[in-house]
Amino acid sequence: MMRLPPFSYRPARSVAEAIALLAEHGLDAMPVSAGTDLYANMKQRLFTPKVLVGLRPIRELRFIDFDEGRGLEIGALSTLTDIARNDAIRAKYPALAEAAGAVSTPQLRNMGTIGGNVCVDTRCNYYNQNLDWRKALGYCMKKDGDICRVAPSSPKCVAVNSSDTAPVLIAFGASARIDGPSGVTTVPFADFYRDDGIRAWAIRPGEIITRIHVPKPAPGTRSAYLKLRLRNSFDFPIVGVAAMVATDDRGLCRDARVVVNAVGSRPVVVDGAAKALIGTHLEASALDEAAEAAFAAAKPLDNTSATIPYRKRMVRVYARRALERIAS
């Protein structure tokens, strides 16, 4: 049996209680929402916290509110199923519903939360392995070792950000509300992820994400999320493409964003794609140019399933397909 390492469980009934419990136990504690990422990692002894602060009992953080003026507000404890099935999200932010609905399996989406999804640990073939496997190889920089097995000369870990919702939230200009011992901050998801597989998130120990705000979409906004994975269920993305365009009533593209994930430690915002699309009527040549820019920006390394050239080429294919779907 793969058992969890021992820990004590402290349920938090409110945000204030969660912050207090995390402060009380310091670096011995970790917050947990559904645990679908954390418990799997703990079974592999990637984390062995002495105390888990359970956020699930904070009932008021499971909500989805859409308002034509303010936009979308999502409580961090909302499940991926809640998001994939929400009518307002499906209508106004279809890429977000698609991304949430593409995570793993129905059971996992019934459990996994959006707060946990945006903080999902970075992944690597040399890291997501059990203790015996990692020990036999002599570990790696992200856990218990000192060199990176993927890029031995790299000073930092290059594990992959595999969150399906992260690129979509960046494309929509969403931000996280973070509560901590020193108060509340708001961090745009565009600034939340770092190009470092170990210190991958702009969140400090003791802080938790409590809400996600997605601005009201501009008129004429359309969006899509496409995910490449080996099996169409269960698997993490090995390429994820979020695309958003906004056109005026003459079909002129006013705003565009293409964000690629699972090819680096943070989602890649493809500025060249936005440049290629804005000011056009989203004709085929503009989509080609944008897809080419996504291809150029993606620099996958050998740390997930499938080969580097295949994943890189599929970025172009999936970017083109996602844009095609929303161009007309």
Binding site: A34, G35, T36, Y39, A40, G54, L108, N110, M111
Partner: peptide, 8 residues
């Protein structure tokens, strides 16, 4: 439906 192997 949930996965009991990942539920506390």
């Amino acid at each position: 439906p949930v996965l009991s192997c990942l539920e506390l």
